[in-house]
Amino acid sequence: MGTQRHAGVMWAVLLGLVVTVLAPLAWAQGPPPGPSGTRARVPAVATTWPVGVRPRILRGWSPPASPYGPGHRGADLAATPGAAVRTVAAGRVSFAGRVAGRGVVSVELRGTGTPPLRTTYEPVRASVRQGDEVTAGAVIGTVEPTGSHCALPCVHWGLRRAETYLNPLLLLPPRLRNGGTSRLLPVLGVPLPS
């Protein structure tokens, strides 16, 4: 009986480790292969999350099968209305205004190739203007209390290179995306191997 219980606990621990390691990878998938079979490269240039320290991801990136097909062209991050929204990397504000009644801020990221990567954040009450240069982590506005397409308050964070939508979570280096370095902790009640 004790051996079966020990084996069950060990399987539970292993399953927990697999979920902990693989779950972040599931929502950090890159874009689907293009016509040539290659994937678009997204450099991990972000130094911070757009909102909070490590916000809950309410809905991840789900690329459409075709340019006009259904999908989710960004990531929805849980956010409190009025919370600061930060640019994830240095760049230039390419748009700050309203689109379909929602506040939107777009930032072209410096040093990300030609054409540059462009991040978008909505619904945001902008505190910047088109043409402003921003540093990584600079506050670009606050979360608007209405205008979100989420059931809970959120910020939709998008990423594009020209007309191609990409996964914004790939901008985050693994230490930010995965919540820091992993370490194993002892399981209470399970004897250490001899």
Rank of each mutant, 00 (worst) to 15 (best):
E122D: 09
W61V: 07
S36M: 09
G158P: 01
V139A: 14
P168F: 04
V134A: 09
P63Y: 07
T48D: 01
G37F: 02
E108H: 12
G69R: 01
T38L: 13
S106M: 12
A26R: 15
E144D: 15
T3P: 00
G131H: 11
T146A: 12
V139H: 05
T80G: 06
L77V: 04
V53S: 14
T164V: 10
E122N: 08
H72V: 07
M10D: 12
G37W: 04
L159W: 03
T120R: 13
I140M: 07
P123W: 01
V51A: 03
L159K: 06
R98A: 13
V19Q: 02
A26E: 14
G180S: 07
S127H: 11
G34V: 04
T119M: 06
V51Q: 02
L15Y: 02
Q130A: 14
G131L: 11
W11D: 12
V42S: 08
R161P: 01
G60T: 11
L176E: 05
V104M: 09
G37A: 05
L192S: 15
R125C: 02
E122W: 03
P70L: 06
A100E: 14
P31T: 09
T80Y: 00
G103L: 01
A96N: 05
A28L: 02
G141W: 04
S148L: 00
V13T: 15
A26D: 13
V190W: 14
Y68M: 12
G82E: 06
S62G: 09
G179Y: 00
T38R: 13
G97F: 04
S106T: 15
A83H: 07
E122V: 04
Y68Q: 15
A12T: 14
S106D: 14
V187S: 13
A100W: 02
R102A: 11
V190F: 06
V85I: 10
H6F: 11
E122C: 03
G16I: 02
R125D: 13
L166C: 09
C154N: 07
A79Q: 07
R41S: 15
A7K: 11
T20Q: 11
A75C: 08
I140E: 03
R54W: 00
G180V: 02
G91M: 06
L170G: 04
S62K: 10
C150Q: 08
D132N: 15
S62V: 14
E163S: 15
T120K: 03
P24M: 05
R118L: 05
G8K: 06
R41Q: 15
R110G: 11
E163Q: 13
E133F: 01
V128P: 08
A136I: 08
T47F: 00
L117D: 11
A78V: 00
E108S: 15
G111H: 13
T38W: 03
D132V: 05
P32Q: 12
V143P: 03
G189H: 05
A84Y: 01
P67T: 10
L170H: 05
G74M: 06
